[in-house]
Design a protein around this nucleic acid. Sequence first.
RNA 1: CGGGGUGUGGCUCAGCAUGGUAGAGUACACGGUUCGGGACCGUGAGGUCGCGAGUUCGAAUCUCGCCACCCCGACCA
Length: 572
Amino acid sequence: MRASQLFFPTLREVPRDAELISHQLLIRGGFVRNVAAGIYSYLPLGWKVHEKISQIVREEANAFGGQEVHMPVLVPKELLDETGRSKVPVLFALKDKNQREFFLGFTHEEVVTDIVRNTISSWKQLPLYLYQIQTKERDEPRPRGGLIRGREFTMYDGYSFDSNEEALETIYRENYRAYGRIFKRCGLEYLAVEADPGAIGGSENHEFMVLTESGEDTVLRCGNCDYAANAERAEIIASAEVVAIGGKAESSVVSTPGAHTVDEVAAFLKVSAEVIIKTIICVADGKPIAGLIRGDRELNLPKFVRVIGAKEVELADAETVKKVTSAPVGFAGPVGLNIPIYVDNELRGSAYVVGANEADAHRIDVQPIADFAVTAWGDIRTAVAGDACIRCGSGVLQDARGIEVGHIFKLGTKYSKDMSALFQDEQGAKHPIIMGCYGLGVSRTMASAIEAHHDENGIRWPITIAPFEVGIIVANAKDESQREYADTLYRSLKALGVDVLLDDRDERIGVKFKDFDLIGVPIQVVIGKGLAGGTLELALRRVKGEKESIAVEGAAETLAKRVCDEKALLDS
RNA sequence: CGGGGUGUGGCUCAGCAUGGUAGAGUACACGGUUCGGGACCGUGAGGUCGCGAGUUCGAAUCUCGCCACCCCGACCA
């Protein structure tokens, strides 16, 4: 491509509405343009990157026997009624001219299961793996960060169909490995972590996180074994035993005027947050309950739901808190509380500080069981760095930030049962097909790559997903010999299969450097004053400030080889 | 959905407190000078000041309502 012909409207300044670096650079580099909240158009450069990522995903899915299909964006309501998912809140809904109801596809389990149940009837037709790379529509409560979380985005979604658990295990591992290869080829450092399955259900599942400082998720991994989990999901080893009760000081109420938060209470009483207990009033399936955790910890709602066996748990509003504790928010405590009290495993000590259930007062020297009834103990707090590893017991968890770019699930028979997708075994007996689903955010991977690879001048695309592999800069567009040679080199590189951008614009060289750095051309060649002496300059975007000299003689071959070398660094 | 913020040529912003009919930089067009890291001079074109009411002789500016977008939280299949 010649830059003079290429539509890539770069921006000098940071767009006002873009906060995240990937969002800023995608817009500044002319990759995407915003249309509405969470909805973007891809311009030529953006689409090239998008398609390069898609192609890598496609190749890896095909490699384990995946077959590409393409399902519709419009999904009839009746199909989602079969699994009850027509009530999912993020659905975009619309009607056709006959008032028939449709949704815009947010994921395609029902659609693909419908295809399979109408075509598959025997164990001999399994296994089957179908996938698509398609636009998904979700009316997210809060789109954010450009391509990181959009309402319209591109997702790879794969679906496996098997007749037995072993086969599901096999295809699940195939996907697990393929995802690893995909992110590696895209030049991304990733981590597969155990995760909460959420409402999609199923048993085993893994999230694939791209590790970057700006990630919105916290992941924990063991320094000793290979355990890794989303911090939300990571389990915590229960304390060995309950400390014996007896001989402890009588609890008493002290005045703590204006101290609502743990920090304020800790400062006022001159104690550490570790000896303060947070009493968090929640509503579980309509009934108030209390969850007790250490002052410096976070209550983990998914864990809490499992411990108490409720369908749904949410934080109580201020009014409920007042009704239950007869005190304003900030002074709730377990002593004298007349609702079920669940206590985090960690709180096995004595002499805690808790709220006194009256304004501006806390109670000190409190011990669970001795001073209040414990409905049940449980793991209800969110794990943090420093906690012991649940798997090996000896390692300590370390934290990192990540962006969730993929999530794979063993679904089991959840959807096949709801939709009667059955197969007959060798004996002729009918069973629901065993399924798995595998999602990978293509557009989110694109943004994540920028989050992971950028500097103050712009994007540093890994060469495998860069919009161009090599960029040629003509230093002086008015120099006939430079222009002619650049054109020759450009044609030679194209003939060698190199994806090359020739900057033949009548611009000062500074403009060209800035644009190339901004859009992230990985290998940059300058045809300048050295041409007369038989040399060109070569710079790598990923290496800062270094230029090397290469010979004009065989330059195209030299560059083509460099492209291969750079790719090999990622593919090894 | 709760909290905060922002809407003024394509882009980034000033002007608003104390109303008098819109300005800079950049980008764009033309001319000239430049030419190895976003050049300089000159000329020119480009704006229903988010939308709608209201107050006023007069509203970008004051009042009320609405909308859009961004950030934090809730949520996130």
